[in-house]
Nucleic acid binder design. Structure first.
Lengths: 225, 225
DNA sequence: ACCTGAACACCGTTCAAGT
DNA sequence: ACCTGAACACCGTTCAAGT
């Protein structure tokens, strides 16, 4: 081959060395995140990932026990991305009710922009049931959930929210926004023309704000004038 | 074989005829529902289904265009099951707020008892994006959703719920209970010892009632004494 | 019209072998 | 220690052929 020699050192090998020695583990995780962001599919094959990274498929098993272990690492990266997306909304200095709605909107928006990653983190059975074996995953999730719990405690302190079990109310809020994100992402609520929800003709983000307002005010309250 | 002749008619063929002529289509759908109810997996293979029904795998393609079309038929059956599970709760004669909580609890319970079927109906990407091609699916979903919307309208009439856009509020309630069901089913909220939720030490059904009460009363309201 | 057996292009994973 | 090529047991689907 023409690339075989160059100053006595094969170019091909120089290029390849980058993947051989630079840690393949991170390259695989980053490549997987990229594939999930690009792909219209919620899944990807290890063979696709391997060829994109420039390595054979079984090479993965030098760094991960199986596909599930890889997916756990990807999900951890996802939790960091999500936290980065949520944090600005609770540091805007706006009033806390607005921060609450902003955070919910940012959460659903993250899901819409990273549907496969979101599904992996919060819904897919691809994260194995034995995933509690990976404590880093639970830590990453708890760290992200902390953004919400901190806000709820501040709302309690300012009298914007009833006193009570913050963990329970956090679970309620989480379930609520997760339900919104899940239904939109999986297409159970169809988006008619751009950004509007079936039978609820308004952009997704407005629907999220309105829905979360119901959670603050309660259905029993009279509708606002 | 010993079964070859019996009164001049092979027994084997007598038994097989049932599947050959009795419509295979329904047998496949029912078999698929059974597989989803039994299986710990959210998915099943067409080969498993075919062998259970006693037929070769490609036989399926005489009745369905592809696996997606089969899954649509299964989901339709699921919506009928769900409606049957919800309807008693809104015909109990109890006060409407109780009916509201009962229905939400029955919804989540249906998901917990039929996780694979629920996932197919409300979350899985296995229902193809072009599923609006199947109008029966939308009809089945709308028919089931009607149970909720009817209740919300009755609540409005009795002054138990603010006036407003019933479709929008129905969407909010649906997203809320779907979020609860999804997180529990997919194990994102771990069940510590029997029936209790992580960091929310109460049975699932109690958590659902408490969470939905928040939606009725609103977070701003003072907690009940 | 309905079903079968063989085949195709995939998939995750294993394993002996190379460096 | 890290990676490869060949192979294994799957998968959904196609297709010619049988009845």
């Amino acid at each position: 081959m023409a690339t075989k020699t160059m100053k006595g050192c094969p170019v091909k090998r120089l290029v390849k060395k980058a993947y051989h020695h630079g840690d393949l583990r991170n390259a695989l995780v980053e490549g997987a995140v990229d594939l999930m962001e690009e792909g219209q599919s919620f899944d990807f094959s290890l063979r696709d990932l391997a060829s994109r990274v420039g390595v054979s498929a079984p090479a993965l098993y030098s760094h991960f026990a199986d596909k599930g272990a890889l997916m756990v690492a990807v999900a951890i990266a996802g939790f960091q991305k999500l936290r980065a997306a949520l944090e600005p909304t609770v540091k805007s200095g706006k009033d806390l009710s607005t921060q609450f709605l902003d955070m919910g909107q940012a959460y659903v928006q993250f899901g819409c922009e990273n549907p496969a990653l979101y599904d992996l983190m919060f819904a897919s059975p691809e994260l194995p049931p034995q995933r509690f074996v990976y404590p880093e995953l639970k830590e990453a999730g708890d760290y992200t959930r902390g953004v919400l719990l901190d806000l709820l405690m501040r709302m309690q302190d300012e009298g914007l929210m009833r006193r009570g079990d913050v963990a329970m109310d956090g679970f309620t809020v989480w379930a609520h926004v997760h339900g919104l994100a899940s239904l939109v992402i999986t297409g159970r609520v169809e988006c008619a023309q751009e950004g509007s929800i079936e039978a609820v003709p308004m952009p997704v983000k407005d629907a999220v704000r309105m829905s979360l307002s119901s959670l603050l005010d309660g259905f029993k309250a009279p509708a606002k004038a």
